[in-house]
């Protein structure tokens, strides 16, 4: 029982960065932009949040700056893929190499050391007393509650609002949208900015919330895992949330299993990637509601 509680607790904690980034990627892919640069947006957010937190400017400032940093990378993505109409895959791959390179370079040259101040745990009275799932679901740091609120907001946006409808329409048929007097270019740019903001927040959740420090290569391919999560989730919010939780459970098990068994830690590191590949195979066999401009 204690094992189960520990696993669910750390799974929920590890899920938060993935979920935030997945919401962002979901918005940009629904608008028809396959954003491989997500990794860069997360790295920018993680690094910016770390630097601000180490300077002791407070957690709210750190979160804001992280969102801003993710947005700046998103603007690069938008400039390259939406405005100049370059190859979106290659632009994203360039950001995948460039941004983590810049943040690691600045981190090493800047000589920052030390962890970030610990985030306070916010417990909801009574509910957090429920055995097994209580502390996992109702006693987490601020990023968890932000992620839950944002998940509901993004879901409501796609299910209930004209904005959500416009975004999905641009992903399916930009030409049709244009005849209705909506600029696909503007919708895609806004979708990418939203994606950058969410991914930047996810990066901050990684460095401030989940790890409590910055290390070079902190994102470590999570941006790509998130892209696979969105594809397997068939571009739905509930699918993305479920996928993020699945990968987070694997991550959490990885930490625990290494304690109790002889399976080497390095081999367990390959596990999420094997699951990602299996997820992609399974998703190819499911009925597709993929944004039509994303045909690949």
């Amino acid at each position: 029982m204690e094992f189960l509680e520990a696993v669910t607790n750390s799974a929920v904690r590890l899920m938060v960065p993935l979920l935030l980034a997945a919401l962002g990627e979901l918005i940009s892919e629904r608008a028809g932009v396959m954003n491989i640069g997500l990794e860069g947006m997360m790295a920018a957010g993680a690094f910016a949040a770390y630097v601000v937190a180490v300077q002791a400017w407070g957690v709210p400032t750190a979160i804001l700056i992280a969102i801003l940093a993710g947005t700046v990378v998103a603007l690069l993505m938008a400039a390259g893929s939406v405005w100049i109409k370059g190859n979106a895959f290659l632009i994203g791959f360039a950001l995948f190499v460039l941004v983590p390179g810049v943040t690691s370079f600045l981190y090493i040259q800047g000589g920052w050391t030390g962890g970030t101040p610990a985030l306070p745990t916010l417990s909801i009275p009574l509910l957090s007393e429920i055995p097994v799932i209580g502390s996992a679901l109702f006693s987490q740091n601020v990023f968890y509650y932000l992620a839950i609120c944002l998940t509901v907001i993004v879901w409501a946006m796609f299910a209930r609002t004209r904005t959500g409808l416009n975004i999905a329409a641009v992903g399916h048929s930009p030409a049709t949208v244009e005849t209705k007097g909506v600029s696909p270019r503007r919708v895609q740019t806004c979708a990418l900015i939203a994606c950058g903001a969410l991914a930047g927040l996810g990066g901050a959740a990684l460095s401030l919330g989940a790890i409590g420090s910055y290390v070079p290569d902190i994102v470590g391919g999570r941006g790509l895992i998130v892209i696979a999560i969105v594809i397997l989730g068939r571009w739905t919010v509930s699918g993305a949330a479920a996928g993020a939780f699945l990968i987070a459970v694997l991550d959490a098990l990885q930490l625990r299993v290494a304690e109790y068994s002889d399976i080497p830690l390095q081999l367990l590191g390959a596990l999420p990637w094997v699951v990602v590949i299996l997820m992609l195979i399974v998703s190819a066999r499911m009925r597709s509601n993929a944004p039509r401009t994303l045909a690949h």
Partner: peptide, 13 residues
């Protein structure tokens, strides 16, 4: 990495 990323970005655009 920074140089490689910048070059690829310029190419991809």
């Amino acid at each position: 990495h920074v140089l490689l990323g910048l070059i690829l970005f310029a190419y991809a655009a």
